[in-house]
């Protein structure tokens, strides 16, 4: 019975299709995380400037994006933009855009936290031993800021991977949707197919996210000193 149930992975290109779905998931997550990190650093630093207007703008952006559900953002950028303003964006672009908007807000908050928690005299200590400003950034400020950021960034990455199934909403066939397609076809004859396919998907998410969070734990432990 197990053997026949597992046949679902041997039929045609089913396994390859799941992997292609995983690739879509990882592609969207990876690009979004990367962009979020870059933009999040900019927005996060804006939040720490002394210019109240910049700070207010960054704050507003952060609160807005965080409180609007992802599905609503996907809807607005995929459907509303095209219907009401004729801006017809490709689904994957919309996915990356929305995840980046969200990730940037999260990242900005992390950066703000890391930047404000670094004491000012770390920079002065660097100056006092004759380091140039760029050497201070390189050897003193950035390593410490990165250490403070890494756990949050990794947490954000896994959350992003786990949120990608939402893109089914704008018709992108990522891992979970491919799984559903397979289940609905194979399930007509194979009642255990849905169990095995979803168990497999569960395993894939675990296999992807677990090492990432373990890596984070490893770094935290390493840098605890």
């Amino acid at each position: 019975m197990l053997d026949s149930a597992l046949n679902v992975f041997r039929q045609g290109r089913n396994l390859a299709r799941l992997m292609e779905g995983l690739w879509v998931t990882l592609e969207i997550s990876a690009v979004s995380v990367l962009l979020s990190m870059l933009l999040g650093i900019v927005v996060g630093l804006l939040m720490t400037t002394r210019k109240p207007l910049w700070r207010a703008a960054a704050r507003l952006y952060l609160e807005l994006v965080r409180f609007v559900p992802i599905l609503v953002l996907l809807y607005i950028f995929y459907y509303t933009l095209s219907r009401n303003w004729g801006i017809n964006l490709e689904a994957k672009i919309v996915a990356v855009l929305v995840f980046t908007l969200w990730g940037t807000a999260e990242m900005a908050d992390l950066v703000r936290g890391a930047a404000t928690s670094l004491p000012a005299h770390q920079r002065e200590s660097g100056r006092a031993i004759g380091l140039t400003e760029s050497q201070i950034n390189r050897y003193v400020i950035i390593p410490q800021a990165v250490r403070r950021l890494i756990p949050g960034v990794i947490n954000l990455t896994t959350r992003m991977i786990k949120t990608t199934p939402f893109v089914f909403f704008i018709n992108v066939p990522e891992l979970t949707k491919v799984g559903q397609q397979i289940v609905e076809v194979a399930g007509m004859k194979n009642y255990m197919a849905s169990f095995w396919v979803y168990a497999f998907i569960f395993f894939i998410y675990f296999a992807v996210c677990y090492p990432i969070s373990r890596f984070s734990g490893f770094l935290e432990k390493k840098w605890e000193n």
């Binding site: 006092a128 031993i129 380091l131 410490q144």
Partner: peptide, 29 residues
Amino acid sequence: NLVRQKIGMVFQSYDLFPHMTVMGNILLG
């Protein structure tokens, strides 16, 4: 940066770099 190499300064607050060992702190400059 060149002048400060000739002027050693120690502050009131403990200002060691927390991510480096004692030796790392001393060797950096």
